[in-house]
Design a protein around this nucleic acid. Sequence first.
RNA 1: GGGCCUGUAGCUCAAUGGUCAGAGCAGGGCGCUCAUAACGCCUUGGUUGGGGGUUCGAGUCCCUCCGGGCCUACCA
Length: 572
Amino acid sequence: MARHLITSAIPYINGIKHLGNLVGSQLPADLFARYLRGRGHEVMFICATDEHGTPAELAAQKAGQPIAEFCAEMHAVQADIARRFGLSFDHFGRSSSERNRVLTQHFAGRLADNGYIAEVSEKQVYSVDDGRFLPDRYIEGTCPNCGYDKARGDQCENCTKQLDPTDLIEPRSAISGSTNLEVRETKHLYLRQSALKDQISDWIDSKTDWPILTTSIARKWLNDGEGLQDRGITRDLSWGVPVRRGDQPWPGMEGKVFYVWFDAPIEYIAATAEWADAQGLDDSAWRRWWRLDQGAGDVTYTQFMGKDNVPFHTLSFPATIIGSGEPWKMVDYIKSFNYLTYDGGQFSTSQGRGVFMDQALEILPADYWRWWLLSHAPESGDSEFTWDNFQQSVNKDLADVLGNFISRITKFCRSKFGEVVPEGGEYGPQEHELIEAMAARIRAYEDCMARMEVRKAAAELRAIWVLGNEYLQAAAPWSTFKTDPERAAMQVRLGLNLIRLYAVLSAPFIPFSSDAMLAAMRTGQRDWPGDVAGALAVLPAGHAFTVPEVLFAKISDESREEWQARFQGVRG
RNA sequence: GGGCCUGUAGCUCAAUGGUCAGAGCAGGGCGCUCAUAACGCCUUGGUUGGGGGUUCGAGUCCCUCCGGGCCUACCA
């Protein structure tokens, strides 16, 4: 039994996430966590909401709520949706927690003590009417290059030219439209990543088994231009972790907060502490996951994230940890994902394009989404969601291959033997062949899971389901029943046991259906099958079961067309 | 502009430089009748984006051209 720490990139607080966000981090992390738990390992699966930053403040403002209230509400909403998607976090924390405030300030203090913090004075655009400094992209104006009148301060979306806010002609606040802008001097703390570059670079080089997507992004940032640059870790905002040097004030930094990307990864640690608090445990309970000097030496730590998060997890956060000089657990494996696109374009939170998590659950059970998303996870490149493909895959895999298998065996049993596992008969060559084939498939499935090859794991699981149909076809209990009822009984008994086995094996992908299958078989025995023959004898003759309702209703053409139309345009 | 990823059957994807480039779906044929008109078996289908090169051997390595995507450091 091993100990696995798993974190999913923490979703931003400003709204309900779409399916692209889900498949890029939380869902595969959940798959992995459920699998490892199923294998009997000790798992700590952590997620949280990422609550700081300008977009959160603006979203709250737009909603007409105080920021703290807005975040509390949105956190509850996201937590509820996550639960309904079956995301099995041990704790779903909040980056605005007291635990994170203390830890973030602690790390900053340690970094300063070790000489990895620089104070830098810089000039930034201040909007007098908004009463706030504006990040570059919140300044709009006319592009000096192409004349586009909605160019942003960081880049013109029309001609793609990189811009500085001061390049813009007639600049205005993207928040209020105010042109009452001025350049003000402000002081910020910078994390001296450049001083840690060699250590980070060596560390990345040691990770030879990481996905290319992960290491290539890291190397690009390490080696591009003049190499890894220092990064500002404070902002002039009111909502965030107040800048302090450990538990001491930080002279000259009054009224400023830490940059959201500085405190967000620290929340992985803080959320584990929040978990301990919620469980009524003391600090040693979470430190044994995070401190190498307090029991985390045998922990394997895996992070899941979309590719846009990779620089922060391969560079900034490691810089924070290394720079602290303290023995914190660092990540062992980073599984990163490309993007899921929607019907040829991008999912877009701002434009409401695509399917959002709450909407997805309104129209179909979570397992439908889980299965499709995971079996089409964007691992080697971006992958595309289309309603046609979704309907076809889900109907074929879940309804026809798995669901119908369960129907045919349970209903056949009921009609010939009643709702009880029948007695009699002994295995012949077909059964031994099945067991052998099953064992090989399960091993392949385990290998894929261990390597976090999500799509391949899904394909193996599906092949395992197919074995059941192949067996039934070959064994044909409906024929043997006529001449050799005992043999038919043995075949049906094996078929019923396959359902339980499938429930156990499928649980990481489709946990709700897995529960329904076990409930129908009236068993709670969900041990991972070490010995396949034994696993197929768990339900003994005489064991009562219930023929389940249709587990996976098919998606009709009418529904598909309706949803296709509904989600084409703007959310609403 | 620079960098990275990607291009394989109608579709979605596999393939440590080494048998005849493989699966699933879709298409075609046959079988079965327990089952959600489901399942099983067989089968059609590819000049691996184009062109050069290295090699005994290239989907895989190199060069070049074409197409798609992403990143480029103050959104997170």
